[in-house]
Design a protein around this nucleic acid. Structure first.
Length: 165
DNA sequence: TAGGCCATCTGGTCCT
DNA sequence: AGGACCAGATGGCCTA
């Protein structure tokens, strides 16, 4: 029987992607806003007007040139890019929340970084366990030890086991 | 190499 | 009108 280890240490504090380097989230958001105002920057993810592009933005540009495509109102591209920036900013916020949640969910030491779906499922199971501990009125440590001694409930075990290991 | 996970772009919908 | 939210599509990276 494996020993359940509650590790409250954040084992992976790295951001989901390293596009923004070591900058803190607020700097990342600022960079995003800067990107929005620098669409012609050569290092911008988006190609400038008339630039060769393999990106989706470039594809869209091609679509604008496509006679069969419905005509876009003026400024559509600018609005689309602004919306992309907002969407990325929104996703960064979501990922930041996921990281916070990960740091509160106990994992096995050997467990690799939790995926988003595993984080959510594990958080649900963890909250349920905390609720059971509260209802039992037992000492949390002894309650967990009791669970380990008796073996986790079959359904719970399936929920807690996220890595398949 | 297939499958899982993720970031990104995009268009649609709803809300303010 | 513009922003927030959402889901689909796509492509990259990683692992078994």
């Amino acid at each position: 029987m494996e020993e359940l280890c509650y590790s409250f240490e954040q084992e992976d504090t790295a951001p989901d992607f390293l596009l923004w380097g070591e900058a803190d989230p607020s700097d990342q958001l600022d960079n995003l806003l800067l990107d929005c105002s620098s669409l012609t920057d050569p290092f911008s993810p988006w190609p400038c007007q008339g630039q060769e592009a393999g990106s989706a933005a470039g594809l869209e540009q091609g679509a604008e040139l496509d006679s069969s495509a419905p005509p876009r109102p003026p400024g559509h591209l600018r609005q689309r890019h602004a919306a992309n920036v907002r969407e990325r900013k929104r996703m960064i916020n979501i990922n930041s929340a996921f990281d916070q949640l990960r740091s509160h969910v106990p994992t096995f030491p050997y467990e690799k970084r939790l995926s988003k779906i595993d984080t959510l499922r594990l958080a649900i199971a963890y909250i349920a366990l905390l609720g059971e501990i509260l209802l039992s009125g037992c000492d949390p440590k002894s309650y967990v030890e009791q669970c380990l001694k008796n073996g986790l409930q079959s359904q719970q075990q399936a929920i807690w086991n996220t890595s398949g290991e």
